[in-house]
Simulated assay, not measured.
Amino acid sequence: MHVGRQAWRAAALTAAATALTVSCGWAAALYGSEVSADQLEGRWTDGSGTSLTFNSDRTFTSEHFDRLPVVADAGCSDPSVLSSGRWAFYASSTTQADETATRGSILSLDSSDDSCSVSAFFFGDDDPAMCPTDDPDANCPTGYFHRTGHGT
């Protein structure tokens, strides 16, 4: 009887872990990483010609970012407005982006005219990757971005 209880406990723990991994938002919670503003600053590319360049003054510029599905999914009436804008980390204690936060695991990218906003999540510890998406459990449909150079 004791062996049956151990098997039941193992099955229950496996089921709980699977449920947590596939439920909304858990991938970011389990595999997400926190980056500092210094780590963020610079050019990030996805390998297909799309890039984001983050500057120390909390601004960004992009190349071909408006072509990504995440921008269309965000409901931006004119996706080209995300060719430049402002960035901010989401503070861990709030659901709002905070321009004074010096580190975070989720980033807000807001167009210069404030008409469009996209979120990006960070994954990995040694060499963080960034995924612009509204659903971090979707296996990064936009493709992962990696830092390739320093900012200004």
Rank of each mutant, 00 (worst) to 15 (best):
S51W: 02
G49A: 07
G85I: 00
C116Y: 04
D78G: 10
S92A: 03
G49R: 15
S51K: 05
E41G: 14
Y90H: 09
S93D: 14
V70I: 11
R67H: 00
S108R: 09
G32W: 13
P79I: 08
E34S: 06
R58V: 09
D38T: 07
S23D: 14
L68H: 11
L52P: 06
L30P: 05
F121H: 08
F65C: 10
T94S: 08
P79C: 11
P69G: 04
G85E: 03
W87V: 06
E34A: 01
C76L: 15
T94V: 13
F60K: 12
G75K: 02
S119R: 13
A120T: 09
S115K: 07
F89N: 05
S23C: 13
A29M: 02
S77W: 06
L68E: 06
I106F: 13
S48Y: 13
C116H: 02
T94F: 03
G42F: 01
V35A: 04
D114R: 04
R43L: 03
G42D: 12
C116S: 09
L30C: 02
S62H: 00
T59L: 11
A91T: 05
V71G: 02
F60G: 14
V22H: 04
S62N: 02
L107R: 11
G32C: 00
L20S: 09
S105K: 04
S93M: 07
A91Q: 10
P69K: 15
T102F: 08
D57N: 08
S56D: 06
Q96E: 04
E99L: 05
G104S: 09
A29C: 05
T95Q: 14
G85Q: 00
C24W: 11
A28L: 00
S36W: 12
V118C: 03
W87Q: 12
F65Y: 11
F121Q: 13
T94K: 08
L82K: 06
D98M: 14
D57V: 15
V81S: 05
S119K: 08
V35P: 05
H64V: 04
R43W: 11
